[in-house]
């Protein structure tokens, strides 16, 4: 028996919004420690890794490890039927071929349930090596989304250059060149407005704008985003999900042809 309840359906809606542009379907691996999802996008350029800890749920029970392959388009249709403040419960029997998603209004006067067929997805799990990153940048998630959106107008690629002075995002195309520099913030009143750079070595890497823009669909989940970079390895873009877990996107760099 698997059962997981969250106090607010809005969190699940935001999580789905953060992955459904990259993935058509995905396997949710459930165990007593929580729910994990790892999947590559269709073109095998990026990898999404979602961790939801069991202690972040209002109720969590998972008697046996369970892998639930879900069509994310179908799940989006079901979540559209929930009000943001509804309780949401996911339930499945061991070895079941369906999952039930139930919504309850705060006053318990409206209860709806949706049974969704599960899929057998033959998904490869990848081992992600530990990396000592050369640069780790923490910045407001809204600012990162704005930069990715703005620079995508000028080029398919963005160059991220991180030094101890700050982090620079550049795009160059037919229109010309765009550069956006962010310096590390001195003192800020609010932690969520800070730009913090931890640098071991300067690094310059090139990434495809369309993937960065897809990752920024996770912006509503978190006030801050963390970018971890190292020469010739994938960028890690991480959004914390408060009291519940995190979503990490790995993006392979563009390399010299």
């Amino acid at each position: 028996m698997f059962e997981a309840r969250l106090g607010q359906a809005t969190i699940l809606k935001k999580i789905l919004d953060a992955i459904k542009d990259l993935l058509n379907e995905a396997t949710f691996d459930c165990s007593d420690s929580g729910i994990q999802l790892q999947a590559m996008d269709n073109s095998h350029v990026s990898l999404v890794s979602l961790t939801l800890r069991s202690d972040g749920f209002d109720k969590f029970r998972c008697d046996r490890n369970l892998s639930m392959g879900m069509n994310l388009g179908s799940m989006a249709k079901i979540l559209k039927c929930a009000n943001n403040e509804d309780n949401v419960t996911m339930k499945a029997q061991d070895n079941a071929d369906t999952v039930t998603i139930m919504f309850e209004s705060a006053n318990q006067e409206k209860v709806s349930d949706y049974e969704m067929k599960l899929m057998n997805l033959d998904q490869e799990h990848l081992g992600i090596p530990e990396t000592d990153f050369s640069c780790v940048v923490r910045m407001p998630a809204m600012e990162f989304a704005r930069i990715c959106r703005d620079l995508a107008q000028f080029s398919e690629s963005v160059v991220i250059c991180c030094t101890k002075e700050g982090v620079k995002f550049s795009a160059s195309g037919d229109v010309g060149t765009a550069n956006i520099k962010l310096a590390q913030t001195g003192s800020v009143d609010k932690e969520e407005e800070a730009v913090i750079i931890e640098m071991q070595e300067p690094v310059t890497l090139t990434f495809a704008c369309r993937y960065l823009n897809a990752f920024t669909k996770a912006t509503p989940l978190s006030t801050q985003v963390q970018l971890s970079m190292c020469a010739d390895v994938p960028l890690v873009v991480e959004y914390a999900i408060k009291d519940l877990g995190h979503i990490r996107y790995y993006l392979a760099p563009k390399i010299e042809d």
């Binding site: 350029v45 799990h125 081992g127 042809d257």
Partner: peptide, 14 residues
């Protein structure tokens, strides 16, 4: 000129 690398060039299959 740059080309897009694949993610599997960096991570190993489990």
């Amino acid at each position: 000129k740059t080309k897009q690398a694949g993610i599997m060039n960096f991570f190993t299959k489990k």
